[in-house]
Amino acid sequence: MNAEKRGLEFYALAAFFALFVLFLYGPLSTILILSFQGPGGGLTFPMNGVSTRWFENLFEQQAVGDFGGSFARSLALGVMTTLTTVAVSLCAGLAFRRRFLGSTALFYLTVASLVVPSILVSLGIGLAFQVAGVQPTWWTSAFGAHLTWTLPFGVLIMFAVFNRFSPAYEEAARDLGASNWQTFVHVVLPIIAPSLVGVGLFGFTLSYDEFARTLMTAGSFNTLPLEIYGMTTNVTTPVLYALGAVTTLVSFTAIAAALVAVTAMARRRKTLKPL
């Protein structure tokens, strides 16, 4: 197939793909542009001058509720969720390499965690806390709610990773006299490290942007997505777009950091010389 000349099918599909990318990024870029709207400008085009007025507005406390606080909470929750997701998914991935009683049930429970609608998880955790007489907070109930969303992704990724993992490396290490722990730390972990970065990235971005599962579980303090959603009903200035631009930038930074980490690992592995 490779040596052939590109046919009509290629150009038609390439054009379709280009449109698809435009569909994905077009709307996002309009709000990035509009966030630099002039001081007198509104929520739609035309641009009424160019300014950073709305970004400044964002950092003035009174204007848009509790941006700073909710931002800090979302970041903290994101980091907590990321670390827990990586650790728990890795352990579960290792467990699923062997047969154990209840492994099928646990696997389908993980899948269920993915397919049960978020609003149900939110309602359920909210009710469970209420029935138990415990106040929901972002670092208890919302943390758990986020894990029900990030863990299935993490576990399924680890599942895929270990499906393709050759036990030959471990056997070689053990033949050379490595203990179980040494084999894990010096052989298994370096090989799967890039995938763990991927799991971490999913954990962070999914938690940082999570809305529906947080709705009934965050308690008295909002996370950033809840704050943004609240703003959509009562804020009619481009400060909303400025907030959108800032939070999108945070997501992009997380993605870039993950990419840099994975590339660095790949490069390091290439330059490693046998002892």
Binding site: A87, V88, S89, C91, A92, L94, A95, F96, R97, R98, R99, F100, L101, G102, S103, L106, L109, T110, A112, S113, V116, L120, V121, L123, G124, I125, L127, A128, V131, G144, A145, L147, T148, L151, V155
Partner: peptide
């Protein structure tokens, strides 16, 4: 080993998925 490794996942999903769904049904 596999039980210890699977325990965190089982505990979290039990507490934050199964139990809440049971609460909804109740």
């Amino acid at each position: 080993a596999p039980y210890l490794q699977a325990a965190p996942l089982a505990l979290i999903l039990g507490a934050f998925l199964l139990l809440p769904l049971a609460a909804i049904v109740a």
